[in-house]
């Protein structure tokens, strides 16, 4: 039966009219629309599309297609997104509105558009590592690399306890404000000196990292990881986590 179906498919494909429109999954039809949209708006070519990892999400009548950096670091290429809604197709790029000039194709530009991607693609595969990695931003993936670049971590000690206590109190207020917690929930927040540390980054700026615990009795513990700029007190990020296993 399956062989018969495959044979039927093959036969159908030999008919010119049907051969041009093979049956595509809805995700694939969305990807095709999105490909055409970013090729049209940003001048990306087919080989350039192959440098990105595409992902399709279908949300009811709306499809969202994202293109993330693959072969070339995303910090250079940026990411593309295409929103396909009943009222239209909207392609966007993370470098939209950037004032950094990249159109000349300068590889030293922190923004790589199609001209830079074309230069990358024009090189042979064996040359690419030597030719282009000098332009790729350095990453500090390991602790050793981070420390070698001048970064460091500092636990709470008697020397910084006062500032750490202030950071912990601010972190609790920030969680309360950001998640609109009730007074009762806010009273169930807690922080610990052992879950607090200061990070000094290689560029010199410092951040407090504070873990805030919420145990409201109705569900399991919820954790909030709060990042605070040590000098300005700006709450830069809050990452929430719940549902641990084991």
């Amino acid at each position: 039966m399956k062989k018969l179906l495959m044979l039927l498919c093959a036969l159908l494909l030999t008919l010119p009219a049907l051969a041009e429109s093979p049956a595509m999954a809805p995700e694939l039809a969305a990807l095709k629309t999105a490909n055409e949209a970013i090729m049209d708006r940003y001048g990306l070519t087919l080989p350039a599309l192959g440098l990105f990892d595409a992902h399709v999400d279908l949300c009811g009548e709306t499809a969202i297609v994202t293109y993330r950096g693959g072969a070339v670091p995303e910090s250079l290429t940026g990411a593309y997104i295409v929103i396909i809604a009943p009222h239209g197709v909207q392609p966007m790029w993370t470098h939209d509105g950037s004032l950094v000039p990249w159109q000349s194709g300068d590889l030293a530009s922190p923004v790589w558009g199609m001209p830079q991607l074309q230069t990358y693609l024009n090189a042979s595969a064996s040359e690419r590592y030597a030719l282009f990695t000098p332009y790729f931003p350095q990453t500090l993936d390991t602790l050793d690399e981070f420390e070698a670049a001048g970064g460091s971590y500092h636990d709470v000690t008697s020397a910084n306890r006062g500032a750490a206590d202030s950071a912990r109190a601010l972190a609790e207020r920030a969680v309360t404000a950001l998640y609109s917690l009730t007074e009762e929930q806010s009273a169930q927040l807690s922080t610990y000196a052992g879950d607090t540390r200061m990070v000094q980054y290689p560029d010199g700026h410092r951040e407090w990292e504070v873990t805030v615990h919420l145990e409201d009795g109705s569900t399991a513990e919820t954790l909030f990881w709060v990042v605070i700029h040590a000098e300005t007190g700006l709450v830069e990020n809050i990452v929430i986590s719940s549902g641990g296993v084991g």
């Binding site: 910084n160 500032a163 202030s166 410092r206 007190g233 700006l234 990020n237 809050i238």
Partner: peptide, 28 residues
């Protein structure tokens, strides 16, 4: 150095209303 940083950091952190980054507000 750490002590100095800690002292400098105190006034900003002691304020009542937290100031959020743009991304934190968007997340909210």
């Amino acid at each position: 150095l750490i002590l100095l940083i800690a002292l400098l950091a105190l006034p900003a952190l002691a304020e009542d209303a937290p100031a959020f980054s743009q991304d934190a507000l968007l997340l909210q």
